[in-house]
Amino acid sequence: MSGDNSANERAGDEAVSRFVERFAAELTEAGMQRMAARVFAALLSSEKGSMTSAELGEQLRISPAAVSGAVRYLSQVDMVSRERDPGSRRDRYVLHNELWYETFTRRDQLLTRWEKALRDGAATLGPDTAAGARVTQTAEFFGFLQHELEGMMDRWRVYREERGIPAP
């Protein structure tokens, strides 16, 4: 019987690995660095949402340097944080709570800055020029996105509450 359990565990591990690689490929296609995408997908699919460098290296079959570089990137974009295991010198990499909500909230702030810069540029270029009209249209687009994103985030909170989806 124990042979059956280890075979089931291996099949489960292989399925998780296939998911990690598939999702990482999607993130890479969207512009994320490949190794960071793999580390992020591994953390996302881990039971606790956190792993040590050694665990990440073993699961992904990558070097400690590759883990370090990926985690540095993920930390810079506020997708993970570093914590110490109590009573240990080992770092544990942890997904942020409400990761996607926070990510899109930061996008909202970015859209605000871009819209302002574009409106300033449109004023500089002049409303009667082709360049000014293009920049104005782009500013309007970012303003629209920002407004829609705010409403979407509000709807997400209601949706989550209605379905009993716990906040992380």
Rank of each mutant, 00 (worst) to 15 (best):
E98S: 08
E140Q: 12
R113C: 01
T138L: 12
D91H: 12
K116R: 13
R134F: 02
R38Y: 08
V94M: 11
S88I: 03
L74Y: 01
E102I: 04
L110T: 15
T52L: 02
W100E: 14
R106G: 05
W114M: 07
L125P: 11
A133R: 15
T52K: 02
F142G: 00
Q109G: 14
G57L: 10
L43Q: 04
S81E: 13
R38W: 02
L99A: 05
V77S: 12
T103N: 08
Q59W: 12
D128T: 12
E102Y: 01
T103W: 12
P127H: 15
V71S: 01
W114H: 06
E115G: 00
F104S: 04
R107A: 13
E98W: 01
L110W: 14
F40L: 15
T136W: 09
T124Q: 15
A41T: 00
Y101H: 06
R61E: 04
T136V: 07
L99F: 08
R119L: 07
E58M: 11
R106K: 01
R113D: 09
S50Q: 14
Q137I: 02
L56P: 02
A41K: 06
S45C: 11
F141K: 14
W100F: 13
G143M: 04
L56F: 05
P64W: 09
S75E: 15
T136Q: 15
D91T: 13
G126V: 05
E58K: 12
R92Q: 00
S45E: 12
Y101F: 08
Q76Y: 00
A130V: 09
A41W: 06
F141A: 15
V71N: 03
R38G: 04
M51G: 05
L74E: 07
E58G: 09
L60N: 01
N97K: 12
F104E: 10
E102S: 06
I62G: 00
M51T: 01
L60F: 01
G69F: 04
G87F: 13
A41D: 00
S68A: 15
G69V: 03
L43F: 05
L118A: 08
G69S: 14
M79I: 00
T136F: 09
G143Y: 07
S75I: 09
L95T: 00
S68L: 14
K116A: 14
Y93K: 06
E47W: 11
A70M: 07
V94I: 03
R92V: 15
G132Q: 01
E115M: 08
T103V: 12
E58R: 12
R106A: 08
D120L: 00
R92H: 00
T105S: 08
K116I: 10
F141I: 11
N97V: 11
V39Q: 04
A123N: 11
F104N: 01
L44N: 06
S45F: 15
Y73F: 05
T105P: 05
R107Y: 09
R82E: 15
T138I: 04
A54T: 09
A54S: 06
Q109Y: 08
K116T: 13
T112H: 00
E140R: 08
D78Q: 10
R89K: 14
V71A: 02
D108W: 06
A66N: 09
P64Y: 07
R113P: 02
T136E: 14
